[in-house]
Design a protein around this nucleic acid. Structure first.
Ligand SMILES: [Mn+2]
Ligand SMILES: [Mn+2]
Ligand SMILES: [Zn+2]
Ligand SMILES: [Zn+2]
Lengths: 149, 149
DNA sequence: TTGTATAATGCGAAAGATTATCAATTGCAA
DNA sequence: TTGCAATTGATAATCTTTCGCATTATACAA
């Protein structure tokens, strides 16, 4: 008789690899995260998790998100607005950056090797080793056609 | 008979130029800000302001800091830690960036024209005009000498 | 499988930063 | 100097996140 409420997911496996106890709630939150390709805040994660398994409290989402971040499974982002937002940590490949549409708030990801290198060089020249880069740019869509949307 | 508690300052002049009513509290906060070359949070600004003129409440510091930011006089910074930090807005010259020492928390400013240009180019190529750059890097001091401090 | 030690959860309270409320005060234009 | 809208101080409210603690579930050994 199966009782498992949420399927396993890549993040659930990561959980095990880190030796974290895999509770039903964590499995559900891991599933929701694996299934997301945006940058939800805790409130939004909670909504998505409850839709999968209603036996979850927001306190556990807060706790799990923190645990996952401490274990390198999640990355916390700050796009302003006063609440933390989360996404699955980049694997091996380089970090990515975020462009926020000033009008819509939409978040657009981008990678740029030159930027990676330049930041590293700058920090090196200042006598430091680069630990973390916190970068997001806010932009406004250029009107390509007159009277454009 | 003079009653003016705080001297005028570059920021106080800016206040007038923007048509903002120049109250005693604002003059004091403007003076404190002009006098600072670091990145104080509101609590710290409050301390410094009270040292100059005790007739100031923290609510007014919050209000003033917000007003100044909305008027381009101040820039709000987020170095993590949950509280906003402030500094006088860069005048004409380009923005600067911040390197945070991972161990001491010390904030080191730097400018880099190549970085300015690269960010602008990247955003342009994505079809946007650059509005704001939010960038800070965390670094750890390289040991230059063995056994170094 | 069953039992147990331990870690995790749910719920509400607490904390910490910032904003809102509102009566009293003040800057400033007339 | 007056008048009045804008600002202030004190404090309550709000918002996000963390804590405390009794209850429950997981991992693991018997
Ligand atoms: Mn933030
Ligand atoms: Mn912050
Ligand atoms: Zn992203
Ligand atoms: Zn600075």
């Amino acid at each position: 008789m199966k009782e498992q409420t949420s399927p396993d997911s890549p993040l659930a496996d990561l959980c095990r690899q880190r030796g974290l106890k895999l509770t039903g709630q964590r499995r559900t939150i891991a599933f929701v995260l694996s299934d997301s390709d945006d940058h939800p805040d805790v409130e939004e994660l909670y909504r998505r998790a409850v839709a999968v398994d209603s036996r979850i409290s927001i306190a556990t989402v807060y706790r799990t998100v923190r645990l996952f971040e401490e274990n390198g499974i999640l990355q916390r982002r700050d796009f302003g607005g006063g609440r933390a937002r989360y996404e699955v940590a980049d694997g091996d490949h380089g970090d990515h950056y975020h462009l926020i549409d000033a009008d819509s708030g939409k978040v657009i990801e981008f990678e740029n090797a030159e930027l990676d290198a330049l930041l590293d060089t700058i920090v090196q020249q200042m006598g430091y080793g680069l630990v973390t880069t916190r970068l997001s740019v806010v932009g406004r869509k250029k009107a390509k056609t007159r009277g454009g949307n």
